[in-house]
Design a protein around this nucleic acid. Structure first.
Lengths: 181, 181
DNA sequence: CATCTCTATATCAATATGATAGTATCGATT
DNA sequence: AATCGATACTATCATATTGATATAGAGATG
Protein backbone atom coordinates (compact mmCIF):
# COMPACT_ATOMS: atom_id res chain seq x y z
CA UNK A 1 0.00 0.00 0.00
CA UNK A 2 1.52 3.27 -1.06
CA UNK A 3 1.49 6.36 1.13
CA UNK A 4 -1.26 8.04 -0.89
CA UNK A 5 -3.65 5.15 -0.29
CA UNK A 6 -2.58 4.97 3.34
CA UNK A 7 -3.44 8.66 3.80
CA UNK A 8 -6.75 8.16 2.05
CA UNK A 9 -7.52 5.29 4.40
CA UNK A 10 -6.58 7.16 7.53
CA UNK A 11 -8.69 10.13 6.43
CA UNK A 12 -11.61 7.73 5.93
CA UNK A 13 -11.51 7.22 9.69
CA UNK A 14 -11.59 10.95 10.37
CA UNK A 15 -10.07 14.28 9.39
CA UNK A 16 -6.41 14.77 10.20
CA UNK A 17 -3.36 16.87 9.51
CA UNK A 18 -0.12 15.57 8.04
CA UNK A 19 1.46 15.74 11.44
CA UNK A 20 -1.32 13.68 12.98
CA UNK A 21 -1.13 11.07 10.22
CA UNK A 22 2.57 10.78 10.80
CA UNK A 23 2.00 10.31 14.54
CA UNK A 24 -0.52 7.56 13.88
CA UNK A 25 1.81 5.56 11.67
CA UNK A 26 4.87 6.22 13.81
CA UNK A 27 3.49 5.79 17.32
CA UNK A 28 -0.20 5.00 17.27
CA UNK A 29 -2.17 1.90 16.44
CA UNK A 30 -0.84 1.85 12.87
CA UNK A 31 2.77 1.80 13.95
CA UNK A 32 3.30 -1.94 14.01
CA UNK A 33 2.17 -2.61 10.47
CA UNK A 34 2.92 0.52 8.51
CA UNK A 35 5.31 3.38 8.30
CA UNK A 36 5.61 6.67 6.49
CA UNK A 37 7.73 9.75 6.94
CA UNK A 38 6.99 13.44 6.49
CA UNK A 39 8.85 13.31 3.23
CA UNK A 40 6.21 11.02 1.78
CA UNK A 41 3.11 12.13 3.69
CA UNK A 42 3.21 15.84 2.85
CA UNK A 43 3.71 15.32 -0.89
CA UNK A 44 1.02 12.63 -0.84
CA UNK A 45 -1.50 15.03 0.73
CA UNK A 46 -0.58 17.73 -1.78
CA UNK A 47 -1.12 15.30 -4.65
CA UNK A 48 -4.40 14.01 -3.21
CA UNK A 49 -5.63 17.59 -2.83
CA UNK A 50 -4.79 18.55 -6.40
CA UNK A 51 -6.48 15.34 -7.58
CA UNK A 52 -9.63 16.28 -5.68
CA UNK A 53 -9.58 13.20 -3.45
CA UNK A 54 -9.19 15.24 -0.27
CA UNK A 55 -9.82 18.85 0.69
CA UNK A 56 -7.62 20.97 2.88
CA UNK A 57 -8.67 23.52 5.47
CA UNK A 58 -6.12 25.77 7.11
CA UNK A 59 -6.74 26.17 10.79
CA UNK A 60 -5.22 28.92 12.93
CA UNK A 61 -4.60 27.68 16.42
CA UNK A 62 -3.96 29.46 19.67
CA UNK A 63 -0.42 29.11 20.99
CA UNK A 64 0.34 26.52 18.35
CA UNK A 65 1.46 26.51 14.74
CA UNK A 66 -1.19 26.64 12.07
CA UNK A 67 -2.56 23.33 11.01
CA UNK A 68 -3.80 22.00 7.68
CA UNK A 69 -6.67 19.64 8.29
CA UNK A 70 -7.47 17.28 5.43
CA UNK A 71 -10.86 15.68 4.75
CA UNK A 72 -11.80 12.89 2.39
CA UNK A 73 -14.08 13.87 -0.50
CA UNK A 74 -16.72 11.59 -2.01
CA UNK A 75 -14.40 11.01 -4.92
CA UNK A 76 -11.61 10.11 -2.51
CA UNK A 77 -13.89 7.66 -0.77
CA UNK A 78 -14.72 6.03 -4.09
CA UNK A 79 -11.09 5.73 -5.07
CA UNK A 80 -10.30 4.18 -1.68
CA UNK A 81 -13.15 1.70 -2.01
CA UNK A 82 -11.84 0.71 -5.42
CA UNK A 83 -8.30 0.25 -4.13
CA UNK A 84 -9.57 -1.90 -1.27
CA UNK A 85 -11.50 -4.09 -3.67
CA UNK A 86 -8.19 -5.19 -5.18
CA UNK A 87 -6.24 -7.94 -3.47
CA UNK A 88 -4.19 -6.86 -0.50
CA UNK A 89 -0.93 -8.53 -1.51
CA UNK A 90 1.40 -10.25 0.94
CA UNK A 91 2.94 -8.48 3.91
CA UNK A 92 6.43 -7.12 3.68
CA UNK A 93 8.48 -8.18 6.57
CA UNK A 94 12.02 -6.90 6.92
CA UNK A 95 14.02 -8.16 9.78
CA UNK A 96 17.51 -6.85 10.35
CA UNK A 97 17.54 -9.21 13.33
CA UNK A 98 17.06 -12.40 11.33
CA UNK A 99 19.53 -11.26 8.68
CA UNK A 100 22.07 -10.38 11.36
CA UNK A 101 21.58 -13.78 13.00
CA UNK A 102 22.28 -15.56 9.76
CA UNK A 103 25.36 -13.48 8.97
CA UNK A 104 26.67 -13.42 12.52
CA UNK A 105 26.99 -17.20 12.45
CA UNK A 106 29.47 -16.88 9.58
CA UNK A 107 31.31 -13.80 10.75
CA UNK A 108 31.12 -13.46 14.53
CA UNK A 109 29.30 -16.39 16.16
CA UNK A 110 29.73 -14.96 19.66
CA UNK A 111 27.33 -12.21 18.58
CA UNK A 112 24.43 -14.65 18.16
CA UNK A 113 23.57 -14.76 21.83
CA UNK A 114 23.53 -11.01 22.39
CA UNK A 115 21.41 -10.50 19.26
CA UNK A 116 18.78 -12.83 20.69
CA UNK A 117 18.96 -11.21 24.11
CA UNK A 118 18.41 -7.75 22.64
CA UNK A 119 15.59 -9.09 20.55
CA UNK A 120 13.77 -10.61 23.50
CA UNK A 121 13.88 -7.25 25.27
CA UNK A 122 12.47 -5.55 22.19
CA UNK A 123 9.57 -7.99 22.12
CA UNK A 124 8.83 -7.48 25.79
CA UNK A 125 8.66 -3.71 25.40
CA UNK A 126 6.55 -3.94 22.25
CA UNK A 127 4.12 -6.23 24.03
CA UNK A 128 3.84 -3.69 26.83
CA UNK A 129 3.15 -0.94 24.37
CA UNK A 130 0.50 -2.91 22.50
CA UNK A 131 -1.15 -3.89 25.76
CA UNK A 132 -1.22 -0.19 26.60
CA UNK A 133 -2.94 0.60 23.31
CA UNK A 134 -5.55 -2.08 24.02
CA UNK A 135 -6.59 -0.22 27.17
CA UNK A 136 -8.01 2.59 25.06
CA UNK A 137 -11.52 2.66 23.67
CA UNK A 138 -11.63 1.48 20.10
CA UNK A 139 -13.69 -0.13 17.37
CA UNK A 140 -13.86 -3.93 17.10
CA UNK A 141 -11.64 -3.87 14.00
CA UNK A 142 -8.99 -1.79 15.73
CA UNK A 143 -9.11 -4.18 18.63
CA UNK A 144 -8.76 -7.09 16.26
CA UNK A 145 -5.78 -5.51 14.52
CA UNK A 146 -3.93 -4.62 17.70
CA UNK A 147 -4.60 -8.05 19.19
CA UNK A 148 -3.21 -9.49 15.99
CA UNK A 149 0.00 -7.53 16.54
CA UNK A 150 0.10 -8.72 20.10
CA UNK A 151 -0.38 -12.33 19.05
CA UNK A 152 2.54 -11.98 16.64
CA UNK A 153 4.84 -10.44 19.23
CA UNK A 154 3.97 -13.14 21.74
CA UNK A 155 4.51 -15.88 19.19
CA UNK A 156 7.94 -14.49 18.31
CA UNK A 157 8.88 -14.21 21.97
CA UNK A 158 7.69 -17.76 22.68
CA UNK A 159 9.63 -19.09 19.73
CA UNK A 160 12.83 -17.37 20.78
CA UNK A 161 12.55 -18.48 24.39
CA UNK A 162 11.78 -22.06 23.40
CA UNK A 163 14.50 -22.37 20.76
CA UNK A 164 17.37 -20.00 21.40
CA UNK A 165 19.26 -22.66 23.33
CA UNK A 166 19.69 -24.73 20.17
CA UNK A 167 21.89 -21.96 18.76
CA UNK A 168 24.11 -21.12 21.69
CA UNK A 169 25.09 -24.40 23.31
CA UNK A 170 28.77 -23.57 23.09
CA UNK A 171 28.94 -19.94 24.18
CA UNK A 172 29.10 -18.77 27.80
CA UNK A 173 25.77 -18.47 29.57
CA UNK A 174 24.58 -14.92 30.09
CA UNK A 175 20.92 -15.07 29.24
CA UNK A 176 19.98 -16.81 32.45
CA UNK A 177 20.91 -13.71 34.41
CA UNK A 178 18.53 -11.48 32.48
CA UNK A 179 15.84 -11.59 35.18
CA UNK A 180 18.15 -10.22 37.87
CA UNK A 181 18.28 -6.67 36.47
CA UNK B 1 19.55 -3.15 6.96
CA UNK B 2 20.39 -1.49 3.67
CA UNK B 3 20.97 -3.43 0.48
CA UNK B 4 24.73 -2.94 0.60
CA UNK B 5 24.97 -4.61 4.01
CA UNK B 6 22.56 -7.31 2.91
CA UNK B 7 24.79 -8.12 -0.09
CA UNK B 8 27.85 -8.13 2.14
CA UNK B 9 26.11 -10.58 4.46
CA UNK B 10 24.96 -12.89 1.71
CA UNK B 11 28.46 -12.91 0.23
CA UNK B 12 29.81 -13.86 3.67
CA UNK B 13 27.93 -17.13 3.21
CA UNK B 14 29.49 -17.75 -0.20
CA UNK B 15 30.28 -16.15 -3.55
CA UNK B 16 27.34 -15.13 -5.68
CA UNK B 17 26.23 -13.07 -8.66
CA UNK B 18 23.72 -10.24 -8.51
CA UNK B 19 21.15 -12.52 -10.08
CA UNK B 20 21.71 -15.19 -7.45
CA UNK B 21 21.47 -12.67 -4.63
CA UNK B 22 18.21 -11.44 -6.04
CA UNK B 23 16.91 -15.02 -6.23
CA UNK B 24 17.82 -15.62 -2.61
CA UNK B 25 15.98 -12.58 -1.34
CA UNK B 26 13.02 -13.03 -3.68
CA UNK B 27 12.44 -16.78 -3.51
CA UNK B 28 14.94 -18.46 -1.25
CA UNK B 29 15.33 -18.66 2.50
CA UNK B 30 15.74 -14.90 2.79
CA UNK B 31 12.49 -14.15 1.05
CA UNK B 32 10.25 -13.95 4.09
CA UNK B 33 12.30 -11.38 5.98
CA UNK B 34 14.00 -9.28 3.36
CA UNK B 35 13.61 -7.99 -0.13
CA UNK B 36 15.71 -6.21 -2.71
CA UNK B 37 15.33 -5.57 -6.40
CA UNK B 38 17.84 -5.53 -9.24
CA UNK B 39 17.69 -1.78 -9.18
CA UNK B 40 19.25 -1.74 -5.73
CA UNK B 41 21.40 -4.89 -5.87
CA UNK B 42 23.42 -4.08 -8.97
CA UNK B 43 24.33 -0.55 -7.88
CA UNK B 44 25.14 -1.89 -4.40
CA UNK B 45 27.56 -4.46 -5.82
CA UNK B 46 29.19 -1.81 -8.00
CA UNK B 47 29.65 0.45 -4.99
CA UNK B 48 30.98 -2.35 -2.81
CA UNK B 49 33.48 -3.26 -5.53
CA UNK B 50 34.75 0.28 -5.91
CA UNK B 51 35.04 0.52 -2.11
CA UNK B 52 37.15 -2.64 -2.04
CA UNK B 53 34.71 -4.61 0.13
CA UNK B 54 34.08 -7.22 -2.54
CA UNK B 55 35.88 -8.35 -5.68
CA UNK B 56 34.26 -9.22 -8.97
CA UNK B 57 35.22 -11.98 -11.37
CA UNK B 58 33.62 -12.21 -14.79
CA UNK B 59 32.79 -15.76 -15.71
CA UNK B 60 32.05 -16.94 -19.24
CA UNK B 61 29.53 -19.72 -19.20
CA UNK B 62 28.57 -22.28 -21.78
CA UNK B 63 25.06 -21.85 -23.19
CA UNK B 64 24.33 -19.16 -20.64
CA UNK B 65 24.94 -15.43 -20.32
CA UNK B 66 28.17 -14.29 -18.72
CA UNK B 67 28.09 -13.99 -15.00
CA UNK B 68 29.78 -11.66 -12.55
CA UNK B 69 30.64 -13.54 -9.41
CA UNK B 70 31.34 -11.40 -6.36
CA UNK B 71 33.48 -12.41 -3.38
CA UNK B 72 33.87 -10.79 0.01
CA UNK B 73 37.31 -9.32 0.76
CA UNK B 74 38.90 -9.26 4.21
CA UNK B 75 38.02 -5.58 4.41
CA UNK B 76 34.43 -6.40 3.50
CA UNK B 77 34.31 -9.03 6.20
CA UNK B 78 35.56 -6.50 8.73
CA UNK B 79 33.01 -3.92 7.70
CA UNK B 80 30.25 -6.53 7.96
CA UNK B 81 31.43 -7.60 11.42
CA UNK B 82 31.35 -3.98 12.51
CA UNK B 83 27.85 -3.45 11.15
CA UNK B 84 26.62 -6.57 12.91
CA UNK B 85 28.09 -5.38 16.20
CA UNK B 86 25.62 -2.48 16.11
CA UNK B 87 22.10 -3.06 17.35
CA UNK B 88 19.78 -4.71 14.86
CA UNK B 89 16.89 -2.27 15.17
CA UNK B 90 13.26 -3.34 15.18
CA UNK B 91 11.66 -5.22 12.29
CA UNK B 92 9.70 -3.37 9.69
CA UNK B 93 6.39 -4.93 9.11
CA UNK B 94 4.11 -3.56 6.44
CA UNK B 95 0.76 -5.14 6.08
CA UNK B 96 -1.57 -3.98 3.35
CA UNK B 97 -3.97 -6.58 4.72
CA UNK B 98 -4.26 -5.05 8.20
CA UNK B 99 -4.52 -1.56 6.75
CA UNK B 100 -7.19 -2.69 4.33
CA UNK B 101 -9.13 -4.38 7.15
CA UNK B 102 -9.14 -1.20 9.16
CA UNK B 103 -10.22 0.96 6.23
CA UNK B 104 -12.70 -1.53 4.83
CA UNK B 105 -14.70 -1.32 8.04
CA UNK B 106 -15.27 2.38 7.38
CA UNK B 107 -15.74 2.23 3.63
CA UNK B 108 -17.00 -1.19 2.54
CA UNK B 109 -17.67 -3.48 5.53
CA UNK B 110 -18.79 -6.34 3.31
CA UNK B 111 -15.18 -6.53 2.12
CA UNK B 112 -13.91 -7.57 5.57
CA UNK B 113 -14.83 -11.22 5.20
CA UNK B 114 -13.23 -11.70 1.79
CA UNK B 115 -10.07 -9.96 2.94
CA UNK B 116 -9.73 -12.46 5.76
CA UNK B 117 -10.53 -15.41 3.50
CA UNK B 118 -7.85 -14.37 1.01
CA UNK B 119 -5.42 -13.87 3.83
CA UNK B 120 -5.98 -17.33 5.27
CA UNK B 121 -5.20 -18.84 1.87
CA UNK B 122 -2.02 -16.80 1.65
CA UNK B 123 -0.90 -18.11 5.02
CA UNK B 124 -1.61 -21.70 4.06
CA UNK B 125 0.48 -21.44 0.91
CA UNK B 126 3.32 -19.67 2.69
CA UNK B 127 3.38 -22.38 5.32
CA UNK B 128 3.63 -24.98 2.58
CA UNK B 129 6.51 -23.14 1.00
CA UNK B 130 8.40 -22.74 4.26
CA UNK B 131 7.86 -26.40 5.08
CA UNK B 132 9.33 -27.18 1.68
CA UNK B 133 12.39 -25.10 2.44
CA UNK B 134 12.85 -26.95 5.73
CA UNK B 135 13.24 -30.23 3.83
CA UNK B 136 16.54 -29.03 2.41
CA UNK B 137 19.88 -29.48 4.14
CA UNK B 138 20.90 -26.38 6.02
CA UNK B 139 22.87 -24.94 8.90
CA UNK B 140 21.31 -24.79 12.38
CA UNK B 141 20.91 -21.01 12.09
CA UNK B 142 19.12 -21.27 8.75
CA UNK B 143 16.86 -23.89 10.25
CA UNK B 144 16.20 -21.62 13.20
CA UNK B 145 15.37 -18.68 10.95
CA UNK B 146 13.02 -20.61 8.69
CA UNK B 147 11.30 -22.23 11.65
CA UNK B 148 10.87 -18.75 13.05
CA UNK B 149 9.09 -17.71 9.88
CA UNK B 150 6.96 -20.80 10.07
CA UNK B 151 6.06 -20.10 13.70
CA UNK B 152 4.95 -16.59 12.71
CA UNK B 153 2.83 -17.80 9.82
CA UNK B 154 1.18 -20.41 11.99
CA UNK B 155 0.52 -17.90 14.76
CA UNK B 156 -1.11 -15.50 12.29
CA UNK B 157 -3.24 -18.28 10.84
CA UNK B 158 -4.28 -19.46 14.29
CA UNK B 159 -5.17 -15.94 15.33
CA UNK B 160 -7.29 -15.36 12.23
CA UNK B 161 -9.12 -18.66 12.53
CA UNK B 162 -9.78 -18.14 16.21
CA UNK B 163 -10.95 -14.54 15.95
CA UNK B 164 -12.34 -13.76 12.52
CA UNK B 165 -15.86 -14.54 13.65
CA UNK B 166 -15.83 -11.53 15.99
CA UNK B 167 -15.67 -9.27 12.94
CA UNK B 168 -18.22 -10.81 10.62
CA UNK B 169 -21.20 -11.74 12.75
CA UNK B 170 -23.59 -9.86 10.53
CA UNK B 171 -22.47 -10.77 7.01
CA UNK B 172 -23.53 -13.92 5.12
CA UNK B 173 -21.53 -17.05 5.86
CA UNK B 174 -19.13 -18.06 3.09
CA UNK B 175 -15.97 -18.94 4.97
CA UNK B 176 -17.33 -22.27 6.17
CA UNK B 177 -17.34 -23.57 2.63
CA UNK B 178 -13.61 -22.96 2.15
CA UNK B 179 -12.68 -26.60 2.79
CA UNK B 180 -14.94 -27.90 0.03
CA UNK B 181 -12.68 -26.65 -2.79
C1' DC C 1 18.41 31.59 30.64
C1' DA C 2 19.84 27.49 28.27
C1' DT C 3 18.21 23.42 26.47
C1' DC C 4 14.88 19.94 25.56
C1' DT C 5 10.46 18.30 23.91
C1' DC C 6 6.17 19.11 21.49
C1' DT C 7 3.41 21.04 17.79
C1' DA C 8 3.52 21.87 12.92
C1' DT C 9 4.90 22.30 7.86
C1' DA C 10 8.25 21.54 4.56
C1' DT C 11 12.33 20.17 1.61
C1' DC C 12 16.19 17.23 -0.11
C1' DA C 13 19.99 13.99 -1.03
C1' DA C 14 20.36 9.32 -0.87
C1' DT C 15 18.22 5.03 -1.35
C1' DA C 16 14.91 1.61 -3.05
C1' DT C 17 11.09 -0.14 -5.86
C1' DG C 18 8.92 -2.02 -9.81
C1' DA C 19 8.89 -2.09 -14.47
C1' DT C 20 11.20 -2.68 -18.45
C1' DA C 21 15.02 -3.65 -21.96
C1' DG C 22 18.26 -6.61 -24.11
C1' DT C 23 20.40 -11.08 -25.15
C1' DA C 24 20.42 -16.05 -25.36
C1' DT C 25 19.06 -21.05 -24.51
C1' DC C 26 15.47 -24.52 -23.68
C1' DG C 27 11.02 -26.85 -23.82
C1' DA C 28 6.30 -26.97 -25.07
C1' DT C 29 2.51 -25.71 -28.01
C1' DT C 30 0.51 -24.94 -32.49
C1' DA D 1 9.17 -24.75 -38.29
C1' DA D 2 7.43 -20.93 -35.89
C1' DT D 3 5.87 -19.00 -31.82
C1' DC D 4 5.35 -18.70 -26.89
C1' DG D 5 6.81 -18.78 -22.25
C1' DA D 6 10.22 -19.76 -18.84
C1' DT D 7 14.92 -19.43 -17.12
C1' DA D 8 19.39 -17.16 -16.79
C1' DC D 9 21.92 -12.89 -16.89
C1' DT D 10 23.14 -7.81 -16.59
C1' DA D 11 21.44 -3.33 -16.54
C1' DT D 12 18.80 1.19 -16.34
C1' DC D 13 15.15 4.57 -15.07
C1' DA D 14 11.06 7.09 -13.49
C1' DT D 15 8.92 7.21 -9.45
C1' DA D 16 8.41 6.43 -4.44
C1' DT D 17 10.29 6.61 0.07
C1' DT D 18 13.44 7.35 3.86
C1' DG D 19 15.89 9.78 7.19
C1' DA D 20 17.81 13.90 8.19
C1' DT D 21 17.39 18.51 8.54
C1' DA D 22 15.37 23.52 8.58
C1' DT D 23 12.21 26.69 10.64
C1' DA D 24 9.67 28.52 14.47
C1' DG D 25 6.88 29.55 18.64
C1' DA D 26 5.25 27.35 23.33
C1' DG D 27 5.96 25.15 27.39
C1' DA D 28 8.67 22.42 30.60
C1' DT D 29 12.96 21.30 33.00
C1' DG D 30 17.06 22.31 35.24
Amino acid sequence: MDVRTLCLGILSLGDASGYEIRKMVAEGSFSFFSEASYGSIYPALTKLTSDGLVTCEELSQDKRPDKKVYSLTDQGRNVLTEKLSQGAGPDKHRSAFLAALLFAEAVSPERVRSLIEERIKQHVSKIERLNGLLEEEMSPVSHFVISYGLAMQNAALDYLEANYSTLIQDTPAVLERADQT
